[in-house]
Design a protein around this nucleic acid. Structure first.
Lengths: 142, 142
DNA sequence: TTATATCCTACTTATTAAGTAGGATATAAG
DNA sequence: CTTATATCCTACTTAATAAGTAGGATATAA
């Protein structure tokens, strides 16, 4: 599977938060109940989103989570990239990877590089607002 | 990582076979040596390719592997899809998945569906011949 | 002070990726 | 018909990641 449960859940949480964007901070428990996701697992996902400045968390009574920017300013790419482990095409392109000896003569590396850009652009063009409003159906699909 | 070592190796094997396409059947050992990949691991990858009618294997003396079609008729998509476990966007779209209860009201499913098509089209437009000839650099990358 | 939250560290378990071992089967040549 | 050379096939092992859990520290409004 290209996108794991973590990425999938993260997207659902974002849509959920967007749909309750005017309600102030939403407690984790509420989201978990609505989405049918384990509280503890959701907590880990939300932490990754907080660390990447995608949502902001407020502690204590009346606390909870909310989008850190307007949903029209947040893209699916940011969300997926924040929670998926190494969302690069191949290991060769991961920042942590040691430089490959075959790199210069590698006939396929340009394809992998382009693929990363294509994926980034694809998810980058979907804003959370679009998705929350249900405008995900694209004319590209036949 | 979106594409695993298996998919990466499979692509390298295909390029290798394309570059030795006129030499008849190429023994596994030769490919493994050239590509620096473990023989036994390569064997598993080649089996998947054989099962998907992408390469054909000939047993016995003077045996080996060769492309089952002209490299211009083989795409990166076929190769990657054959060796990667479940190369779908999300579990919801895997043929083995039970039908999701939220499917009708799911705001994100159309995006996942479109993503699968985008990935398929992207790798589908690269033929093994293109890659073997080193025509992978695309004007799309800046 | 207390109830309600998020934050943080450290686990456990399941699944997949990655790699290995050894024998069965086919085939061309001597 | 024997032998060397291959692929085929089943079944492992080990490492890494995904998925989920537990429990306490910290912050905050009433």
């Amino acid at each position: 599977m290209i996108v794991s449960t973590k990425g999938r859940y993260a997207m659902r949480v974002m849509i959920d938060l967007a749909q309750h964007n005017s309600d102030g901070s939403i407690p984790l428990k509420q989201i978990a109940d609505r989405q049918g996701i384990s509280e503890k697992y959701l907590e880990a996902i939300l932490r990754a989103l907080v660390e990447n400045n995608i949502v902001s968390g407020v502690r204590g009574r009346d606390g909870g989570y909310s989008l850190s920017r307007d949903p029209s300013e947040l893209t699916a790419w940011e969300v997926i990239f924040a929670v998926e482990k190494d969302f690069y095409a191949v290991t060769c392109l991961s920042p942590g990877a040691e430089t490959c000896k075959r790199e210069k003569e590698c006939a396929i590396l340009p394809m992998w590089k382009e693929f990363y850009e294509v994926v980034k652009d694809f998810f980058g063009k979907y804003t959370i607002q679009d998705l929350a409003e249900g405008i995900a159906t694209s004319p590209v699909i036949i």
